[in-house]
Amino acid sequence: MVRFTAVGLRYPSPDGQEGPEALADLTFTLPEGSFTWLLGASGAGKSSLLRLMHLALLPTRGELEVLGVRVNAARRGALPALRRRIGVVFQDFRLLPYLSAFDNVALPLRLAGRSEASLRPDVTEMLRWVGLQGKELSLPQQLSGGEQQRIAIARAVVTRPALLVADEPTGNLDSHQARRLLALLAQMNRLGTTVVVATHSEDLVEQFPAQALLLEDGRVVHHG
């Protein structure tokens, strides 16, 4: 479950002063096991909201609860374990450039302390699922944008997270691959994962009707 209560987020401006609020007065709840589309124009604050959800940023005001943990009140030392229960597809992928496709996907499992022998089948299967079998040893710069995006997706879901946060996960995919990805997300959601997907693609939303959260200028203007 994810619960926002009067959450605001302010990025620091370059001169060290406080900037304007990128997000303001966000109050909503995403129930456990729900699927939510996050919609809004470019610059509306979708990525910022997702950064709060996967704890890359902390709210500058308000209360945030993620997977049963009240983030504001939590010890700093408790956050890494919480982050490892969240899968993230970043808008800009954020792959490690000097790690192979295999090692990029294996990274969250290794951070969780999984043994090399036990993580190998999971990583290989995940790479096959996103259609990258045979590219295990390629470095990100040797892959196309869509292939990089699929590595980012594989890395996000390989740990079977309790919360999956995807920021424009189909931006570089063709329509066939986008449908495949959607099927993957839907299946994970059926198995109990809470899924939040930010997208500009109306096609995608039409294919999988679910509740939507519409952002405008950093505020929620529609939820349902």
């Binding site: 030392g77 890494p80 374990a81 969240i86 969250p108």
Partner: peptide, 16 residues
């Protein structure tokens, strides 16, 4: 810097 931020976002601890 970037790699550290990515590892951090994926749940690596400070100690790690």
């Amino acid at each position: 810097r970037q790699a550290i931020e990515i590892l951090h976002d994926l749940g690596a601890t400070q100690g790690d």
